[in-house]
Structure formats: C-alpha cells, structure tokens
C-alpha cells in the first residue's frame, strides 16, 4: 500500500471512529469576526428550543408545505 493511500485510510478510519472531532466555529482559522456561522451554537439553541416547544420559526422564504413534503430535491448537478 503506498503512503498516500495509507494516509487516506488512516484519515477515514480516524474520522469514522470519532478520533477527529468537529470544530467549533471559534476554533476555525478561516472564519473572520462577525460571521453568522460564529454564532451557530446560539442559533442552534434557539432553533432547538423552538422545535421542542412545537413552534414555528418566522424566517422569510422558509419552508412551504410543498417543500416539507419533498425531502429529496435534486440539489446536485446543473439542471
């Protein structure tokens, strides 16, 4: 097995076994200050609280009934 493939297999195994963790947004070196993604934990808490209380989020252009009934849009490819 060549070195490149060994590295790939190790990375895959480490990831699937949980040895590589998800980053928190604040740990990312690529994120600049002021990005919404930096506040994802706060957003998630609000979203989850909303869902747990059986309430809907008011977000412009959110889901419609058709969208909720259609989980598998072709979100790949050109056209």
């Amino acid at each position: 097995m060549d070195k490149h493939k060994k590295h790939l297999l190790w990375s895959a195994a480490a990831f699937t076994l949980g040895l590589v963790s998800m980053p928190s947004a604040s740990q990312s070196l690529s994120v600049e200050e002021g990005l919404a993604i930096d506040r994802l934990p706060e957003i998630r808490a609000v979203l989850r609280d909303t869902l747990e209380q059986g309430r809907d989020l008011i977000v412009p252009s959110g889901s419609t009934k058709l969208a909720q009934d259609w989980p598998n849009w072709t979100n790949w490819g050109n056209g």
Partner: peptide, 20 residues
C-alpha cells in the same frame, strides 16, 4: 471511500461551515 472519507475528515477539522 478512502478519498471521500479523508476529505470529510479534513472538512470537519478545518471548516467552520461543516455543521451546515
């Protein structure tokens, strides 16, 4: 799968948008 899983691991490690 070895390539794809390696890419996944790198995205999880390096990108703040991975949770999305």
């Amino acid at each position: 799968w070895a390539e794809i899983a390696s890419g996944l691991a790198a995205c999880a490690r390096d990108c703040a948008y991975f949770p999305i």
